[in-house]
Design a protein around this nucleic acid. Structure first.
Length: 377
DNA sequence: AAACCGGGGGT
DNA sequence: ACCCCAGGTTT
């Protein structure tokens, strides 16, 4: 296989001597260029774990305030294990990928119940916990326990591809095997944590996607891509899925100063979070009022849209038309989906997706006058 | 292998 | 408007 040949070629020529030199230069650079990150404060597995889960597909700047609040509210794995799912989701609100929060709580319960509250120190055992994959397991082992473990994520993936000078697709099975093999050779027995952090930091700040700073890279003389001028073409860009435009409707049903919320099911987007009544506009065949009665068993008078907001979610661009409605009769039901009535004051304590929160803020901020207009009682 | 999961920030 | 992000799970 051509791909297999490319893999062998890419790994050939990295002598133990060269790797030792590479590590020395990397450490020297890192000790100058270091920026503070939450987990540098301690080598606590719980803290490293929380931060790594939050950082999945999420930028450092976005994570920091969430990390601080989370550690204050749930300072130990035992505290997290004892929390309700809703409480954990509440702290996760706005961060996205909410299965991370649900898995976090489940994993905490496993650690408490099956590991006596102590994090296992082996990659395989950590990877068996919900929400912990190969990267996060390696990150915990190397950062928290300071034991050698390979890490491959967005930054090191790009860095390794360029160092290796390979045009192999890093997302393919062959590419993955190549990268993890190379990643396994990099952390030394002594102080591997620093090397792994330095690799990620170099990828994040110097070996960047668009304009890699090769002139200031401490590993320039080791880089097979830079040697041949291929750093801009490696790694090959991922194919972007096409954006689908959809129109949805949200209905704020009001009854005696309270609003109606539905909970998203486990097989839906925003699983476990609450929302106003919300559905694709195309599912509405007749009037909105008829739709509410047929689908939720609720009689209500529905007004024209009072607000429209757009937002992106995964590969969808959503236009959301928001309606105010006045409840008349009928308790809401739809399969086993939970519903609840909450006052506007209580809304702050219920986990909502970002789009729902924007709508909620609108209701609270609009004031009594507008609400009276929207909900003619 | 491909789809799915969210939202923010940079350009 | 498009690209990227300290990924993991499910199909």
């Amino acid at each position: 296989m051509a791909a297999q040949r490319a893999e062998e070629d890419a790994l050939a020529g990295w002598s133990a001597r060269e790797l030792a030199t590479l590590r020395r230069r990397l450490r020297a650079w890192y000790r100058e260029a270091a920026r503070p990150l939450p987990w540098r404060e301690s080598h606590d597995a719980y803290r490293v774990w929380i931060s790594e889960i939050m950082l999945q597909q999420t930028t450092v700047a976005a994570v920091i305030p969430y990390y601080e609040r989370f550690l204050t509210r749930f300072p130990t794995v035992a505290a997290l294990a004892a929390a309700s799912e809703s409480d954990v989701l509440q702290l996760w609100e706005g961060l996205g990928y909410y299965s991370r929060a649900r898995n976090l709580r489940r994993a905490a319960q496993v650690v408490v119940e099956q590991h006596a509250g102590e994090f296992p120190q082996a990659v395989e055992e950590l990877q068996a916990l919900p929400g912990i994959g190969r990267y996060t397991a390696g990150a915990i082992v190397s950062f928290a326990f300071n034991r050698p473990a390979p890490i491959v994520e967005a930054n090191t993936l790009r860095l390794y591809c360029r160092l290796l000078g390979t045009r192999v697709d890093p997302r393919s099975a062959v590419g993955q095997r190549l990268l993890w093999e190379f990643a396994g050779r990099l952390p030394p027995a002594s102080e591997p944590s620093e090397i792994n952090q330095a690799l990620m930091e170099l990828g994040a700040t110097v070996c960047t996607p668009r304009e890699p700073g090769c002139q200031r890279c401490p590993l320039l003389s080791h880089c097979r891509a830079a040697a041949t001028g291929l750093q801009h073409e490696i790694p090959p860009p991922a194919r972007r899925p096409e954006l689908t435009r959809v129109v949805e409707r949200a209905v704020v049903v009001r009854r005696r100063g309270q609003v109606l919320l539905m909970q998203h099911g486990v097989d839906e987007r925003w699983a476990g979070l609450w929302n106003f009544l919300r559905f694709p506009a195309e599912e509405v065949t007749g009037s909105l009022s008829e739709h509410l009665q047929q689908r939720f068993g609720v009689r209500a008078t529905v007004g024209d849209p009072f607000h429209t907001l757009t937002h992106g979610v995964t590969r969808y661009h959503i236009t959301l038309h928001c309606h105010a409605a006045q409840w008349q009769s009928g308790e809401p039901h739809e399969g086993t989906r939970p519903f609840q009535w909450v006052s506007l004051d209580q809304l702050a304590g219920v986990p909502l997706p970002q789009s729902g929160r924007k709508l909620a803020r609108l209701l609270v901020a609009e004031g009594t006058t507008t609400q009276r207009r929207l909900f003619a009682e």
